[in-house]
Each structure stands twice: as C-alpha cells, then as structure tokens.
C-alpha cells in the first residue's frame, strides 16, 4: 500500500537532513544499484542534487553534458521513462549517452519525474548493474520516492531567502558553476554570446569524449582555449 511505503520512506529519512540522504534512501528502498536527482527548469538541466556513487554521478553528468538521457526525457515528457536493457534496447535512443553509460556499468536506467501539481522540478534517475525491468513494487516505490523528493526540495526551498538557493539544496549538489565561469570566459575569447559559448564548450566536450565539467575546469585554469 502507498501509505505503508510513504511511512517506510519517511522513517528512513527521519532525523537525517541533506539531499545526499534522499538518493541513498531511494537506492535502498527501491532496491537498485544507484540513484541520482537532477534539477531542471525551462528546458535545461541545472545540475545534480545528489548521486549515490560514481556510476550515478556519471549518469547525471552525461545528461548534463549531452542534454539527453532518462532524466531529461522524464522531465521533458513529464512521464516515467524505463529502459530495462540499456546495452540492447528494443528501440535505440540516447545515442551519445548510452555507450559511456553502459561502459561505466549501467545496464538498466529509469527516470521518474519530480513534480508537485503542475510544478515540474526535474527527475530522479535509477540505475541497475544488470538488465531487467523494475517489478511492480519497485515501480510503486519509485513513484512515492519521486513524490517525497519533490516535496522535500520545495519544503527546503520554502525556507530560503528570496532569490537565493536554500543552503541544504546547495550542500553536496553539483550545479556546474565552473561550466558557467568557462562559458563567460569563452564568450569573451571568441566574441560570442554566453549561450553560444556554452554550445561550443559542449561540442568540445562531446568531440573529445570528456565530461563538460573537466573541459570547463581546463578553460578556467587557462590550460585550454577554444577557437
């Protein structure tokens, strides 16, 4: 029953603050290999609130760099996205995302939208190191977990000063600030807008097969100049 699920999840979360706990609880309650929560608005990922291990961090990072993947789709379509066999999907999708995700050990990925009423916040992503669908209980747990996470994020943000991000949301999160620093620098270097500079950075990351964050770090450290 959904009521029992909610109680179980809230009991696990009780007394421990921080978004990192949200991802840990998602992993243990749902019974998957790892979880991550991506915050989005408009049509763009802002970054990752939490991730449980290197693989889920990579899954978040790839989606941020490439703008495709289960979370991005779950958020945009506002519906659950299930890929029980990432290495051998029925219908291939996420052509850039899939090879590095599989190479890292993700064999099944699932995206559940984070929303409350009509407010859409992002998505929670779950991965497993072997292929196979979520069973009914896991699916139901994931839906409840997504609901709990959405409420948690907005509750925490409700306590923040106007215009600022709640500090509990910032702690442990990766909103890729260095990427925006680099975009600012590249825009001056190339004489283009920051939007275009960001596209150039993404293109460079994609073509060199590196995470966007690493490329941006090099730009900021002045060991890389684009153009």
């Amino acid at each position: 029953m959904a009521g029992d699920r909610l109680r179980r999840i809230l009991a696990e979360l009780a007394g421990v603050g921080g978004s990192a706990r949200l991802c840990e609880v998602s992993t243990s309650v749902i019974g998957v290999s790892g979880a991550g929560i991506m915050i989005m608005s408009g049509d763009v990922p802002h970054g990752s609130l939490c991730s449980t291990n290197e693989v889920s961090a990579l899954i978040e990072d790839l989606q941020y760099t490439l703008g495709e993947g289960p979370c991005v789709d779950a958020y945009r379509a506002d519906q659950v996205v299930l890929e029980p066999d990432l290495a051998d999907p029925v219908v291939p999708r996420w052509l850039a995302f899939t090879p590095p995700a599989v190479a890292a050990g993700a064999r099944a990925v699932f995206g559940f939208p984070l929303r409350l009423g009509v407010a859409r916040l992002g998505a929670i992503n779950l991965y497993r190191d072997r292929p196979g669908p979520l069973d009914n209980d896991q699916h139901a747990d994931a839906l409840v977990m997504a609901d709990v996470a959405a409420r948690w994020v907005l509750d925490v943000q409700a306590g923040a000063p106007e215009g600022a991000l709640a500090s509990s949301l910032a702690d442990g999160a990766d909103f890729h600030y260095v990427v925006h620093n680099a975009a600012g620098m590249v825009s001056v270097q190339l004489g283009v807008s920051v939007t275009e500079a960001l596209i150039r950075l993404r293109a460079h990351a994609f073509s060199s097969g590196r995470p966007l964050g690493d490329v941006a770090r090099d730009v900021v450290d002045r060991t890389l100049r684009l153009g």
């Binding site: 915050i39 608005s41 408009g42 802002h46 409350l116 009423g117 009509v118 407010a119 859409r120 916040l121 994020v153 907005l154 943000q157 409700a158 923040a160 106007e162 215009g163 600022a164 991000l165 949301l169 909103f175 600030y177 260095v178 925006h180 620093n181 680099a182 975009a183 600012g184 620098m185 590249v186 825009s187 001056v188 270097q189 920051v194 900021v220």
Partner: peptide, 30 residues
C-alpha cells in the same frame, strides 16, 4: 499546487541568477 508552483519558480530564479553571476565572473575574469 499554486504554492508548489511559486516555490518551484523561486528555485528556478535562484538557480538561474546564480548561473548569470557565474557567467559574469568568467567574463570579467577574462
């Protein structure tokens, strides 16, 4: 729902203005 929407917008504004500040730091730094 209205309250959730208000908070979500606030969250989005906070993240977006932080992005602009980080971009500006890059611009000025360069």
């Amino acid at each position: 729902t209205t309250e959730a929407q208000r908070l979500n917008e606030q969250l989005s504004v906070a993240l977006t203005s932080r992005v602009v500040i980080e971009q500006a730091k890059g611009v000025i730094s360069e």
